[in-house]
Design a protein around this nucleic acid. Structure first.
Length: 535
RNA sequence: GGGCCUGUAGCUCAGUCAGGUAGAGCGUCGGACUUUUAAUCCGAUGGUCGCGGGUUCGAACCCCGUCAGGCCCGCCA
């Protein structure tokens, strides 16, 4: 059974109605690590739906969280906002300075700024959650009731956090962080509580009262989370391993949920995604790849497959080079399979059955449309990468595919695939080993291996190319002819051609590539090869 | 100090929850095909399941220990 179905099954034992939740703090650029959070939730919701449950998927935007520090991408002016809520401060402009104009005119906040491109990517990936803005929820009083319970039971909650996370809370700790005189959540001390008011004094010497029913502050994270479970009715939540550790926020959260009077959701801890060879992703280290950037390289279903095929507790290394080829080709293979037929075989061992079910589940989750049927495009990534490089315009790519019988018609999916492929080829991610290059200098290693026959072929070929009309068909004819004239197999002629022009034993179909290049360039490299052989 | 995850073929991993002959894909090698789409098809290759004990008729799987890597216990997906 696929991991999403396992989770759905265990949810079904607890009831029919479910809310699967997910949440992210919009403190900076979103990256594909965040995509795992939200796709994990989306996939569980889809599996639960498939299992006949009544399920809703929500995405909580933690816009009530404070700005922790002035990140590298922010200008020094942001110093004044440290501690202020992300949904209440202006977005950075291109230079990293606060965009006051948009903030005042449109209410365009820091949270909006980072959230919007992510939401666009989600839409393309087929994730359509109900959005819950956390700051707005505080302001509209959604947290009021649970905040009251938290404040009333401050000592119980303190005991719980201290016991489970084995950290000591300061004497003046209180389960409510009021906004200070500068609308910040830091540098403020609670001096008293008298529902609905929490009295405070800040480091600037100001005092005031925060109305907990109006969002004039927020619950600290460890209480904020279980409180959200309560008022939203969350029954299942996937979260990163950082929250899942013993003593972490889930273990305190589940107990605080009970104190607040509701059941904690079923947890699903997932591992992080790292960029191959670069460690964990971190916006400040600059080694991120955003969902948008990833979508420029591969279609959404392949991105989904990346998440779907690995169990949540497996760390994923996202490889934007050759790994992408493998992943995309894996998708094609899966899409071409007939799982129902495979599973109809009674002689399957338990292990084989599990493997087929998992593959089918991963493919089902990869579709951007729930219940959508994956279409095999019959053109592998590898193949398309070749064609895209050798043929400058799309029409030539399609006619090549059609004449070889690989495809019947050009579908929008194929056009989409090709355009992303061209993006990838031009990006820094495209792997060198996939790149087709014609040598500029002879490769001596390869040439040294030539026997006398091969040397003769090279001479013949050079002469033929000199005389040849420079189009794909004629070039294609003169390569094997160089061998035939000597009563040798065409195969050996290609071997010589690859060695001389690409420094490789074999390669892609040469003629169309050469035809795209200048005849003189090719001749000069061939002549250079001949010179170096005779020396 | 406490805890979590991972360790299975050259690589990426499945299989561990419900113990029953060690699996897949990629790679590699070989063959077929030949005016070769690094294509396709066929075949082969490849593992003391990190290590040591225990339970069992039987352990990759359960238990105990141990080693290695990653991570968490302020914040981070």
């Amino acid at each position: 059974m696929h991991w999403t179905d396992v989770t759905a099954q265990s949810l079904s034992h607890k009831g029919k109605k479910h809310i699967v939740s997910t949440g992210i703090t919009p403190s900076g650029e979103f990256h594909i690590g965040h995509l795992r959070e939200i796709l994990t939730g989306d996939m569980i919701a889809r599996a639960a739906q498939d299992a006949g449950l009544d399920v809703e998927f929500v995405f909580i935007i933690d816009s009530a969280d404070p700005l922790r520090k002035v990140y590298d991408f922010l200008g020094p002016e942001y110093e004044q906002f440290v501690g202020n809520q992300l949904g209440a401060i202006p977005a950075p402009d291109e230079d990293g300075n606060p965009d006051w104009e948009r903030f005042e005119k449109e209410g365009w906040t820091y949270a909006n700024h980072f959230l919007e491109p992510f939401l666009k990517a989600l839409n393309e990936i087929g994730v359509k959650p109900r959005l819950i803005d956390n700051l707005e929820s505080y302001r509209s009083g959604r947290f009021a009731e649970l905040s009251k319970i938290a404040c009333d039971r401050a000592e119980d909650i303190r005991e719980c956090i201290e016991r489970i996370s084995s950290r000591e809370l300061p004497d003046n700790w209180f389960p409510w962080s009021p906004l200070n005189s500068k609308k910040g959540l830091d540098k403020v001390k609670v001096t008293g509580y008298d529902y609905p008011l929490v009295h405070w004094k800040d480091e600037y010497g100001e005092t005031g009262s925060s109305d907990i029913s109006k969002g004039e502050g927020k619950l600290p994270w460890r209480i904020d989370w279980p409180a959200k479970w309560g008022w939203i009715g969350v029954t299942c939540e996937a979260f990163g391993k950082d929250h899942g550790a013993a003593g972490g926020s889930y273990s305190t959260g589940r107990e605080i949920a009970h104190l607040l009077g509701h059941e904690p959701p079923q947890p699903l801890v997932y591992e992080w995604i790292s960029l191959k060879g670069q460690g964990a992703m971190s916006s400040s280290a600059g080694n991120t790849i955003g969902p948008i950037e990833a979508l420029e390289l591969v279609p959404p279903e392949i991105l989904r497959l990346l998440i779907a095929k690995s169990k949540p507790n497996k760390a994923i290394e996202f490889d934007t080079g050759m790994g992408l080829v493998t992943l995309a080709d894996e998708y094609e293979r899966l899409a071409a399979r007939d799982f129902d037929k495979e599973l109809a075989n009674d002689e399957l061992s338990r292990r084989q059955r599990v493997q087929i079910e998992d593959a089918a589940g991963a493919l089902r989750m990869a579709s951007t449309v729930a219940g959508g049927k994956a279409q095999a495009t019959a053109v592998t990534f590898r193949h398309l990468a070749l064609l895209a490089q050798t043929k400058k315009n799309d029409e030539d790519v399609w006619s090549s595919l059609q004449s070889s019988g690989a495809i019947d018609a050009v579908t929008p999916e194929l056009q989409d695939r090709l355009s992303r492929m061209r993006h990838w080829i031009h990006s820094r991610h495209f792997p060198a080993e996939m790149r087709i290059t014609i040598l500029e200098q002879p490769n001596m290693e390869m040439l040294k291996m030539f026997d006398d026959d091969e040397k003769k072929i090279l001479a013949n070929m050079t002469a033929a190319m000199e005389a040849c009309v420079w189009d794909a068909q004629s070039i294609g004819a003169c390569i094997p002819q160089a061998a035939r004239d000597l009563d040798l197999s065409p195969r050996s002629a290609f071997k010589v051609a690859y060695a001389a022009l690409m420094g490789a034993e074999k390669g892609p179909r040469l003629a169309p590539i050469l035809a795209e290049m200048e005849q003189q360039e090719i001749l000069s490299i061939l002549r250079a090869c001949m010179t170096s052989i005779t020396e």
